[in-house]
Amino acid sequence: MFLVSALLVGILFAVSTYLILQGSFVRILFGFILIANAANLVLLSMTGDPRGRAAPVVLDETVPMADPLPQALILTAIVIGFAVAAYFVFLLYRIFLDWKTDDALALFAKKKPTDL
């Protein structure tokens, strides 16, 4: 149970790191979105074993419930992650407008626009 969750987190981190190390900005964006999800899973796995626990809605005090704190943190993280992803999308847009390329390698090899 724990092992599976931890393995999944590891795989997602590996994949997203690989994506971020790519040259294409679109892949970097995908890598970022994926890494945000993976980080959420890290937090989520902190809630422990969900089996035999109910959702953290207190209707009956006797039932054991899942830890609400990581969930609240993740909820915040999802929304913030989306906001940052949206910012990245606009950044991608702008980079393409300025450079006509989505390749980080090509972009950093080039001169700055003001140098021309």
Binding site: D98, W99, K100, K110, K111, P113, L116
Partner: peptide
């Protein structure tokens, strides 16, 4: 306000 120059793809046009 700068021109779009510096990409190998669009170098000619730019």
């Amino acid at each position: 306000e700068h021109p779009v120059v510096g990409s190998d793809i669009f170098d000619k046009e730019a």
